[in-house]
Nucleic acid binder design. Sequence first.
DNA 1: TAATAGTGCCAAAACGTTTGGGCAAATACT
DNA 2: AGTATTTGCCCAAACGTTTTGGCACTATTA
Lengths: 343, 343
Amino acid sequence: MGAGTASLRDVAELAGVSITTVSHVLNDVPGKRIAAKTRQRVRSAAAQLEYRPNKLAQGLRSQRSYSLGFVSDLVATTPYAVRMVLGAQEAAANLGYLLFLVTSGGDQDLEAQQLRALLDRQVDGLLYASMFHRVVEPPALLEAAPVVLLNARCADGRYSSVLPDETGGAWAAVEELARQGHKRIGFLHNELDIPARSLRMRGYQEALAAHGIDFDPELVWCGEDAPGGYAAARELLDRPECPTALFCFTDRMAMGAYQAAQELGLRIPHDLSIVGFDDQEVVSAGLRPGLTTMALPHYEMGRWAVTELMKRIDAGSDVPPTHALLDCPLVHRESVAAPREAR
Amino acid sequence: MGAGTASLRDVAELAGVSITTVSHVLNDVPGKRIAAKTRQRVRSAAAQLEYRPNKLAQGLRSQRSYSLGFVSDLVATTPYAVRMVLGAQEAAANLGYLLFLVTSGGDQDLEAQQLRALLDRQVDGLLYASMFHRVVEPPALLEAAPVVLLNARCADGRYSSVLPDETGGAWAAVEELARQGHKRIGFLHNELDIPARSLRMRGYQEALAAHGIDFDPELVWCGEDAPGGYAAARELLDRPECPTALFCFTDRMAMGAYQAAQELGLRIPHDLSIVGFDDQEVVSAGLRPGLTTMALPHYEMGRWAVTELMKRIDAGSDVPPTHALLDCPLVHRESVAAPREAR
DNA sequence: TAATAGTGCCAAAACGTTTGGGCAAATACT
DNA sequence: AGTATTTGCCCAAACGTTTTGGCACTATTA
């Protein structure tokens, strides 16, 4: 009844064989001829001592630490990003891997220091994650191990990357509204210089076009977070020819839009349909009525990244990088209905 | 210009000394007499080769892996808990430690499996974290390493633990309202069987008592999340003698209360003051007006936990466990004012 | 000059694995 | 019976460190 501290030697001694043999048996090394009886003896000795291999020693010897580094700019304020970590962690666990989690807070020196700490521990690969979709300039240290970019891509496409399909998401959101018969669909847009900005704009425009609706720049208004969403929505809804539906860049902006609608006496979805983006549950499920919104596939991206990273670890760095775009599923709640006019 | 893959032997060769000497120099081993010149030579050789010690080898030899395990039930849906991880991670990084992050999702077998994976990697200690404050029954495997309980405690107090001061937080929240002159302070309470429930209730009652206000069970109504908060608030506010202020168990319930208030034509904070709990920023900063609320000291708890864990790692398990209660700071926004009657 | 003390360095074992190259004994062929 | 083959196992080196216990010099002292 070992306290889990038994070594290969202890097992060997108890089984009356050499360390080599124990190793061969426990690892099922192919091509090694060992009598069934001996195997049995070894296994039961190992079981009896509750033998567990020391991963440090294993890693030292076989150049495989079975651990990965998850590097992210800031895990802090962004709640949904947690699902990225979770997806990665679960996928890793299934393969016998563990994740080192480090955050740089955006500080380059700190990031380098953390990366070195990871490499010192001989991680087999790195997940370089951004908390919001962006183009990154990966630090030189990343060269030292297989890498996959998560929720980010680099300008030269050198590393594999996985991103949400922003355009497709925006497209589907607007499609959902257009299908209900909406013609005047406002867009509560973001003003940050991030890829999602132009990508979702594209989706918005293309979906409009697909439904034969002319793009009207007057129906696009920028802002940020709930206050920005509120202001932008007031702006759009205070007009004579106001939109019957709003597509919001984030759930938080949608939250602001709800407030504006309420103040103006517009009932959702009767007088105004709203679709958000992010499926930030505290907001989308907390609002009344529940907010129909596009979910970001954070969990799936985390999983994808690990799977891809494994391929690269196993195959060496000669395989060309892959770039994935994952779907943003529509989450139906109660904020969308046909426009009044169409009823 | 080594690719970071130089070993002690390479440095020794380049400096023309033995491995031993290099180790002594680079580790500043006290009591070792080595000529200043030699030291210089070794250091510059190490620098030139960009030598970095292999932590696997170090750990194997010196029984210190400089890594910790962060075990949590589920990192998933709960966004604020992220700050716990962050606090732990930053504190660990400052001490040269890295964090392995694992989540069990509440599954006992999976948890055991993950714990073993951590122990296999010879972690120096474990952070056993709960995503919401609760009493846990720690698995037997925790015995195998120093442990600190994070946002949790065990019934027998065997392990060190750190928790938010729920009672103090509730006390301060109600105090904030009472100080403004509110006499009828409703409590939108939770109905789950968790420690926070009775602890906050105690804070609520004590603060009332401190202000000479009689506790009125009629002013306490249970529910959960935004919908529950909405329902409970409707219940309380629809009366003739309705409360002038609401203390909400969570920000999400407060969100529901906002909706109820809006429907009833009550303006916040003019007609109704509200204090929440959690400081879940998407909600508290997203509501109009901003929600005054009690923040949970997740970040600080994370920090405290690794500090405590370090003590226990360094001191052996003979030092008695410590149990900390950390303050919940009040976050002022715009949802509190004096009651109308008092103006 | 010889004993003593101090200085500067190193060899080797150990941590717990994996793995290539064995070598005896048992079995199969001629 | 003698050779070839197979079976079953083990030795020892290696991974990259830390650490103990020296050993060979040089400098000091008597």
